[in-house]
Amino acid sequence: MTEYKLVVVGAGGVGKSALTIQLIQNHFVDEYDPTIEDSYRKQVVIDGETCLLDILDTAGQEEYSAMRDQYMRTGEGFLCVFAINNTKSFEDIHHYREQIKRVKDSEDVPMVLVGNKCDLPSRTVDTKQAQDLARSYGIPFIETSAKTRQGVDDAFYTLVREIRKHKEKMSKDGKKKKKKSKTKCVIM
């Protein structure tokens, strides 16, 4: 069974824990209790493949930012979460993405942009803004509501699919490099 290491990042209060708990335990946590770091595991079937999701729910508070490099190193894919009623959390996505790329030393890291709290009427981040940002990053965008469960499975499952595509691409690139290195030079 394939294991996928997913990391949920975003500013404090955007609903990272609520999304994760909704996926794992099928219930909505409405009281806000700032996370330092929590880890969850769940076995699911995605596109006919049974897999184990190892999900790291991270601290959004700035005082825990020193811990970010460590979990970013171990993560295979990242859910970059903002709240649709919090423009600052949307603007912060850029910083999370840049930090992930720096730590992973790669421009090509599996990510999904997630606009959470889409059940709320007080939207300050337009869907088109988020779609445009995701398009500019070359990553999928999904709106979710941890409260109603809308888009929750889709967000995590899409990230797994992005990781699969990335692994497939990397193995193809690896095979191309191996083929090239088999060419021999004969000096007579």
Rank of each mutant, 00 (worst) to 15 (best):
A146S: 01
D153K: 12
R135I: 14
K175Y: 14
F156G: 00
T127I: 10
A155C: 11
K178Y: 09
A146Y: 00
G151V: 03
I139D: 04
I139Y: 04
L133G: 04
R149G: 09
K128S: 13
D126R: 04
K128W: 07
K176V: 03
A155L: 06
K169I: 09
R135W: 03
K165I: 06
G151W: 13
A130Q: 08
G138D: 04
T127F: 08
F156R: 00
R149L: 10
D154M: 08
Q131K: 12
L133S: 05
K184G: 15
Q131M: 12
T127W: 08
Y157M: 12
K175W: 04
V160S: 02
T127Y: 09
K128E: 14
Q131Y: 04
M170G: 05
I187C: 15
K176S: 10
V186L: 09
H166F: 12
Q129L: 10
H166G: 11
L159Y: 00
K167W: 02
Y157T: 14
A155S: 03
D132F: 03
R135T: 05
I142K: 08
A130P: 04
K176C: 12
T127D: 12
L159W: 00
K184H: 06
I139C: 04
I187E: 15
Y137M: 12
G151R: 04
Y137I: 07
E168S: 06
G138R: 01
V125I: 03
L133K: 08
K169Y: 03
G151N: 15
K178F: 09
F156V: 07
Y157G: 14
K169A: 03
I142L: 10
S145C: 15
Y137F: 11
M188E: 15
T158E: 11
Q131I: 09
L133V: 12
A134I: 09
M188S: 15
D154S: 09
T183Y: 01
M188C: 06
D153Y: 10
Q131T: 07
R164W: 03
V152P: 03
A130F: 15
D126W: 05
F156N: 00
I139R: 01
S136I: 07
Y137C: 14
E168V: 03
T158S: 05
Y137V: 12
H166D: 06
K165A: 05
Q129S: 08
D154V: 05
Y157S: 15
L159K: 00
A130M: 13
S136V: 07
A155T: 01
F156L: 06
L159P: 00
G138Y: 01
V186A: 15
D154W: 03
T158H: 10
V152W: 15
K128N: 12
E168R: 07
D132R: 04
K175R: 08
S136Y: 04
T158W: 02
Y137S: 13
E162K: 03
D132N: 04
V160R: 02
D132A: 07
K128A: 12
T127S: 12
D132V: 05
A155P: 06
Q131D: 08
H166P: 01
V160N: 01
T158V: 02
K167P: 01
A130H: 04
